[in-house]
Design a protein around this nucleic acid. Structure first.
Lengths: 428, 428
DNA sequence: CTGAAAGCGCTTACAG
DNA sequence: CTGAAAGCGCTTACAG
């Protein structure tokens, strides 16, 4: 660790409020680490205070100066061990590891192992045709030197990049939870398979050009593209380069590019059936922007479910946000005061509808049942809590990653459609 | 576009419900594109139907077969133009562009421009010392051939990667909105500066090792690391390699690694002052996991504000989720029924507290004022709407990107602390 | 201002 | 099973 004047410093522990049993081994462990550091010449330049809650005030002086860490015991010990190992490591190397030192290359490893570069390459890449002794020697040299292959050099000759581009466009639909889940799960699965992720944006003409260039220059072995609402053309264009492309959401136009989607129609039909099942017969619908494919599908599901009951849909077009949902609901309810239920193509619209209902003095669900779509985080926080259709964001992310992996393996794959489950709460 | 049996097909337009004025030019434009395609030998294999809402049912047959696009006029025209240009482009190239064709190299460009590879390289990299004619010739050849430099070859010799690693660890604090904002804004700004983003996870021992290897092997020119709560050691370790590192959130231990943070203490003090200003004197606090630095700082701000008013804090420790917040609130309120306000270190805890208050029959804010921290999406949806402290997620993301860029430019930089503003709603 | 040439660190036929 | 050698596509002193 480095203080503000750049000098190394080691920890001095002051721990309070720890169970005695635990304290002993904890302190011992720490002091051992400390002793090692001191013996190896580190100078004490400050204090790191670990303490529990009841000594916050006492410890405040230290906190101001060096930072105070409040941790539970488990964390405390893990961190302690980490930093102890780390100190030893650093000190063992005699001061700062030098970033400017040349990294070892195949050449270095080969020399140390007493074999040729070709053999080292074979071992590193897991080829079978290497003798046990050679392999052993190479592996040892790799370990001792901390050899890591140079990705650029490898990619230059293999023409692979072991990289997948994750392309985000404007999130008109889906929201932050979906983005976060995809970023996390797609990355996790692809990293597990030895791929690297390049994050790209495709929200402007410029950035879209960049994506096309990137892919045409073969800087990615595959592309995960989301959400595609406005980007059918982009997806097709990328697919034409021969690089595997995978989409989130059904594209507007039938396509051979495989995609992952949620059963929007089925979910909307389920929500509508639920309203019907509660005896509602005059059901209005708040419908988000109809150029979004997901909105189209939800609309279709709603319509089909109504038709089956011999009813016809009654729509109010709306934007994407709560304010616009509230306005559409007000409009619909004043034009059609007889309505006893509202279905909306998104939770944000439903939350707007709840506000409108409150403003208009309609009790939910007694006078007006409201059902949304999405099960966003806020849906369970409203009063009444929102009945809605859950969009399984994590499953979508995982399916997307799996689809990409199978395409990278050269397998063909069709679209994946995940079920959307009704979540019944209080609003309908 | 490709149908399911792999054949090209062109669009046939059927548009309804469009204002007549618009319709004419729209259809004309489309038919022109169509004619071009047909003249150039494309076969009609299907229909793409653009229509507006009122012909949904009629169009359903087409929808089933080929996908139906509902679009507003603006979108319609843009998309039409896109696909028309795209058709022409593809067809002009005589069928599918071949992904397996060799891309042009410096060599190719040099030959075409009648100069040496070195000169082409100089032009491409914007060096000044090139004659106007040579530059002109090279630029033309680049344009005509669609030349894009091979990143691997370039990186091999320059030892730069023009890549920044964006490292995500477990999101114990901050949530999806923060992740989404960072992914979006950091990527946007760095792409604008010609950098590529490599997305990495650091949530397991394995993935952390991968990150260290990645950086030590110089596969990134910089690292944006978030959230650092458990990763002080990782940040220090990466910084030791000499690669610029930038952190989200104040690290637990004082460090030279620059970071971006929110004024957690100031925000908590403001919320507490607000409660005091409303005449509340018996203020309890729900305190999230105290090993999180942000929680420590919020706690400190709360305590300082109380102390200034001659009061002492009354804490209940809690986890991170709503359930745990509700439980802590129940505990605190039954042990101390005299409490007239609660401050919480996060909105999720506050939402839990609202539930507990309702269960216990306490009216909010009359009997019990509640203030949270974060201003998450759900905060404005509760009843009563939550008074809270806004954490400016976009500003954080932008500051993080700026910090990284200045570090990449070799400039040193200190920590950035962004203000956290009180948002007064109904709960306090 | 320009070109010939060396070299970045790998992989991969090819020959043995 | 192994090594010598060519070559991936670029940049950059160096010499002119």
């Amino acid at each position: 660790m480095i203080t503000e004047n750049g000098a190394d410093f080691v920890d001095v522990l002051t721990a309070d409020g720890i169970h005695d049993v635990e304290r002993t081994s904890f302190i011992e462990e720490h002091l051992r680490a400390l002793r090692v550091s001191l013996e190896e010449g580190a100078k004490v330049r400050g204090y790191l205070v670990w303490s529990l809650l009841d000594c916050v005030e006492w410890a405040d002086g230290y906190r101001r100066k060096f930072g105070l860490v409040h941790v539970d015991l488990e964390t405390q010990r893990r961190r302690l061990k980490d930093s102890a190992l780390w100190y030893r490591d650093v000190i063992a190397r005699n001061g700062l590891p030098d970033g400017r030192t040349r990294r070892p290359t195949l050449e270095t490893v080969a020399a140390r192992a007493g074999v040729s570069r070709a053999t080292v390459s074979r071992v590193v890449n897991g080829e079978a045709s290497v003798s046990a002794e050679a392999r052993e020697a190479v592996l040892r040299a790799v370990r001792e030197l901390g050899y890591v292959p140079n990705a650029a050099a490898r990619s230059l000759v293999t023409r692979r990049t072991d990289t997948v581009a994750l392309v985000l466009s404007e999130p008109r639909h889906g929201g932050d939870a979906l983005i976060a889940a995809i970023v996390r799960y797609v990355t996790s699965m692809l990293e597990g398979a030895g791929k690297q992720i390049t994050l790209m944006l495709a929200d402007t003409a410029d950035s879209r050009r960049r994506v096309v260039q990137h892919v045409e220059a073969r800087q990615a072995d595959g592309v995960v593209l989301l959400p595609p609402d406005d980007h059918g053309p982009l997806a097709e264009r990328l697919a034409r380069t021969g690089v595997p492309v995978v989409l989130l959401g059904r594209p507007a136009v039938a396509s051979l590019v495989p995609h992952v989607d949620v059963d929007n129609a089925g979910g909307a039909a389920a929500a509508t059936a639920h309203l019907l099942g509660r005896g509602r017969r005059r059901i209005g619908m708040l419908c988000g922007p109809t150029d979004l494919v997901a909105v189209q599908d939800r609309l279709a599901g709603h319509r089909d479910a109504l038709r089956e009951a011999g009813l016809r849909p009654l729509l109010a077009l709306s934007g994407l946000d709560r304010e616009s949902g509230a306005a559409a609901a007000r409009r619909l309810l004043s034009d059609h005061p007889e309505l006893d239920a509202l279905f909306t193509t998104s939770d944000d619209l439903a939350i707007g509808a709840l506000r409108a209902a409150r403003d208009l003095g309609r009790r939910v669900p007694e006078d007006l049942a409201v059902a949304g779509f999405g099960d966003i985080d806020a849906a369970s926080c409203t009063t009444p809590a929102l009945t809605t259709v859950r969009v399984p964001v994590e499953d979508q992310a995982l399916a997307l990653a799996r689809l990409m992996l199978s395409r990278l393996d050269g397998r063909h794959a069709g679209p994946v459609v995940l079920p959307a489950r009704l979540v019944v709460r209080d609003s309908a």
